[in-house]
Amino acid sequence: MDATASGPGEPMIRLSGVGKTYDDGTVAVQEVDLDVAAGEMVCLVGPSGCGKSTTLKMINRLIEPTTGRIFLDGQDVTDADPVELRRGIGYVIQQVGLFPHQRIINNVMTVPLLYGESKATARERARELLDTVGLDPDQYADRYPHQLSGGQRQRVGVARALAANPPVLLMDEPFGAVDPVVRTRLQDEFMRLQRDLGKTVVLVTHDIDEAVRMGNRVAIFAAGGRLAQYATPTELLARPADDFVADFVGSTRGLRRLAVTPLREEHLEPLDGVTGGALGSAIDLDSSLEEALAALLRDDKPMIGVKDGARFVGVLTPAGVHRALRESLR
């Protein structure tokens, strides 16, 4: 499947016909064409053994591709020194991989020191990154990994991956080892971080909800390493490419569309003539349709007020929700 139609300009990552076949004839990944635009977060998702982690590891050549070419910021890196390639790519795994006998600050300093930074500069950078990922360096820098929770260790792993300020960040099931509440919090924190830093991120997950929540685009892999569909979350949920994709995203994909479709001012009705008894509590204009519909159902009102900051901009009705879903596919 050709998935190279991304945004304008040269993609930050391009896989062109990249595949992996092992010596025993097992096809782990069929020839994949995949572009990832600069600053984009792309999620690779699919059932176990479908080749999503293998595809990720071929980008930084922890696994060598059998066929195809890999381009990073327009440069063909297929024949480059893999060690040098990896130094320019952040990598975060589920198990985090922190050095257990080193303090947290030393774990994060590892990569800058490899690049020849002075200890003072590396320490300052590490403290800044701990603060960036929401860990107070005065509180956590001198602790050891076993003294942190799973979610905190995962944050340290992200900080270490960012220490060399890489343009590309690869993440393999980064939030899979923590409980659901912490997982949601980490997802929110990472999406905030992504908005602030603008890194190009490829994230592997087995969770379709995580994929459509976090990804600008989602690549669904099927058994045998086949790229079944590569699309925005809205398009994926509304127009599955085949029966496999439809089954994988599930029968509740219509509800999932509510979570990935933003509310916009053009979906609203004017406030004129609305009486207080008909109006429920107010929501923010940057809410998702899922949040808006939940508020409508909670208040059991025919409409709900919408604010942009302190200013009321209109009211949302069930007809407005339907209009927003319809227009999201145009």
Score class of each variant (00 low, 15 high):
Gln94Asp: 08
Leu258Asp: 08
Asp243Arg: 12
Ala294Gln: 13
Lys119Ala: 15
Ala159Cys: 07
Asp172Lys: 02
Ser288Leu: 04
Pro166Glu: 03
Val108Asp: 13
Leu129Asp: 06
Gly273Arg: 01
Met1Ala: 12
Asp138Cys: 03
Ala141Cys: 06
Ser288Val: 08
Ile220Pro: 03
Asp207Asn: 12
Asp196Asn: 11
Ser149Trp: 11
Ile13Trp: 01
Gly74Ile: 02
Gly224Ser: 10
Pro47Asn: 05
Gln152Gly: 10
Thr110Lys: 00
Asp272Glu: 15
Glu10Trp: 00
Arg153Cys: 11
Asp142Thr: 08
Pro8Ile: 08
Gly150Asn: 06
Ile220Ser: 11
Val181Glu: 13
Glu31Pro: 07
Gly225Pro: 08
Ala310Lys: 11
Gly74Phe: 02
Val77Ser: 01
Glu10Ser: 13
Thr54Leu: 10
Val274Phe: 12
Pro270Gln: 05
Ala28Asn: 09
Gly314His: 01
Glu327Cys: 12
Gln95Pro: 10
Gly68His: 03
Asp79Tyr: 04
Val32Thr: 15
Thr132Trp: 02
Gly305Ser: 15
Thr110Ala: 11
Asp188Tyr: 00
Met41Arg: 14
Val111Thr: 11
Glu265Cys: 09
Ile89Pro: 06
Ser288Asp: 05
Ile13Leu: 15
Met58Asn: 04
Leu56Asn: 05
Val111Asn: 00
Thr232Ala: 08
Ala120Ser: 14
Arg323Leu: 04
Ala324Tyr: 03
Ile63Glu: 15
Cys43Asp: 03
Leu263Cys: 03
Gly90Cys: 00
Val212Ile: 15
Ser287Ala: 15
Glu235Gln: 14
